[in-house]
Design a binder for these strands. Structure first.
Lengths: 340, 340
DNA sequence: GCCAATTTTGTAATCGATTACAATTAAAAT
DNA sequence: ATTTTAATTGTAATCGATTACAAAATTGGC
């Protein structure tokens, strides 16, 4: 609660000296140091970073912008970000947007108003334009979700290839009616730039590519763009059950969605994997623990976080822009494995 | 990137006028307003909040401190916090501690250095002392986890009663060897103040109370204080299987732990609920979706968040301290229900 | 058209730190 | 002991905003 001025007065020195003791102690005499530190103790002084940051034009803080923290997936990405940030003595703050543009703009304001030195966006949807604009003047990195603007540093897997791999995996196992469960396909109607739809649109492309390669025609009645949660997965299954012919496989763009779907199928007596194969996305902890365990596309979450933070540092110090694609992996488990 | 000074110059007015246009436009002539706004546009001006906050001694931001964002449970609490915060035009930032004291101290610094106006801690373990000290000079509220210091505002359920209810529920269904899976029991050895162990210790008390009431002796070989994750639950089961006599029920302090346990039991051919009953904690989405669905203690997460934020506002504006206990509920599902 | 009352604008202090530069003090060299 | 050099400290400007107070401009009443 005390200010540096009061500390200076108490210690009988100038504020400059106090500042030096706290920031470059080697430049001040041992004895004065002690006096000052004693005063700091006595007055229970803690610096006001608003003043410090204002003067120094830097905060040593960055912001991570997420849609929701209830997605297991992000936790590990954030850990990567934090570990790398710590190396450089930076603090990591987070904000959630819950898919509302309003909240993304709020996060953007946080950067423009100099509360943080930069930001990592894991949510580009609904505000690509504004993030792009932000990126012209402030350090920005996008992670997990693709962005159209090549001026923005970005880290993610190859979503097209990943979906292609998953789809092909199912096709090779004899599946031909593969339902797709994910998000935002419908945005397509308003704009043809694919990047704007995020990873889901890319995955849809990979899916189609695999089908075409196998000469299977794309059936859009098998698309269920509800969302990524358990409930979305379950709810999509209610729709699926209305189809004349059921699909023989489901490819969900999230593990939670896949699990919600399996659960709903079970309620109707449809078995996984015997009747329908199911593949998820992200390889979250639950995909291993669920019964049946879930085949899924694993993303190198920790590495994504680490890399994103690295790119952000490069951006903060030198305005270098760079995009990196990391490797995914298909993890085969029980939801696509018929027991022998 | 432009400063207010530049805007003022461009518009041909003083900085005071610019500030007024932005903050109390009614006090400035229409025509000047337009000039200024035009300048703001032209120079793409955004205020620097460091300066503003410094001058005004407030930031309109608060910090939420969590152990981890990978716990489904917190997501909904945070939503409550955010919704209430928005009502008062506050922003909510988050930091994770991953159960490391070092990180809690980092969060505390964030408040002391005036980057935020106050904080909600959902993680008191490892730093009660410091949080208590912080609370003397800055607005602090604790949520979900109990705190010893009565000067700290706190919101949570009655953990003793909740655990009592769960245990009693099992006893009433004929279970007598009830294993406990949770965290931090062992801290007990170093200090006898129960509050320091957090909610887990309270739950242990409730558990014991129910047993004693039923004249069942407490068997500490049935305590498995590994942690709250899926893996912890599964790993505890490996230990359980080493027992001479298996328990007939498991009460886990988290849904994830309970599910991890069910999964591990299944691997060894032990069925839930036929062979063992399992009860979880928190009523997260997965408890409904898992197979078998999980009986669990539900906490009013959203309400906890809402209330915590309310208490923080009271603390920010008037140094009122208040603690609130909210109601829990026992949700019965398949993991404790023998099919007829 | 003049004066008082009111509205609008500007000047300068302020928030709490850092830091260039100057001034002082101590140590080293002669 | 005196000068030179280096180490230590202080003075004051600065970061970018807000805001009390003073000054100027406008309005209204006569």
């Amino acid at each position: 609660m005390a200010t540096m001025k009061e500390v200076a007065h108490y210690a009988g020195v100038s504020v400059a000296t106090v500042s030096r003791v706290l920031n470059q102690p080697q430049s001040v005499k041992k004895k004065t140091q002690e006096q000052v530190l004693k005063a700091v103790q006595a007055l229970n002084y803690t610096p006001n970073f608003l003043g410090k940051n204002l003067r120094q034009h830097q905060t040593k803080r960055i912001l991570v912008v997420l849609n929701t923290i209830s997605n297991q997936f992000y936790s590990r990405v954030v850990q990567g970000i934090e570990d790398k940030a710590r190396e450089f003595d930076y603090n990591v703050l987070m904000m959630t947007t819950r898919n509302l543009q309003k909240n993304i703009l709020e996060a953007i304001t946080m950067i423009q108003t100099k509360i943080v030195d930069g930001a990592i966006f894991m949510t580009t949807l609904h505000a690509e334009e504004q993030i792009s604009e932000l990126n012209r003047n402030y350090p920005v990195v996008c992670a997990c979700e693709p962005v159209e603007d090549t001026e923005i540093s970005c880290v993610s897997i190859d979503n097209i290839q990943a979906a292609y791999d998953a789809t092909r995996f199912l096709i090779e196992r004899g599946k031909r009616r593969i339902a797709l469960m994910g998000v935002n396909f419908d945005l397509k109607k308003t704009d043809q730039k694919i990047h704007q739809y995020g990873s889901a649109a890319l995955r849809e492309i990979g899916y189609k590519k695999a089908l075409e390669e196998a000469h299977i025609s794309v059936d859009t009645t098998l698309f269920f763009p509800k969302g990524l949660t358990y409930k979305d997965g379950a709810s999509s299954v209610w729709d699926i059950l209305k189809l004349k012919r059921l699909p023989d496989a489901i490819f969900a763009f999230s593990d939670a969605g896949a699990i919600g779907a399996i659960r709903a199928l079970k309620v109707r007596g449809i078995r996984v994997p015997e009747d329908i194969f199911v593949v998820g996305f992200d390889n979250t902890a639950m995909s291993e623990v669920y019964q049946p365990s879930l085949t899924t596309i694993g993303q190198p979450q920790y590495m994504i976080g680490l890399t994103a933070m690295e790119l952000l540092f490069e951006r903060i110090s030198g305005h270098v822009t760079k995009s990196i694609v990391l490797k995914h992996e298909l993890v085969e488990r029980d939801s696509t494995r018929l027991s022998v």
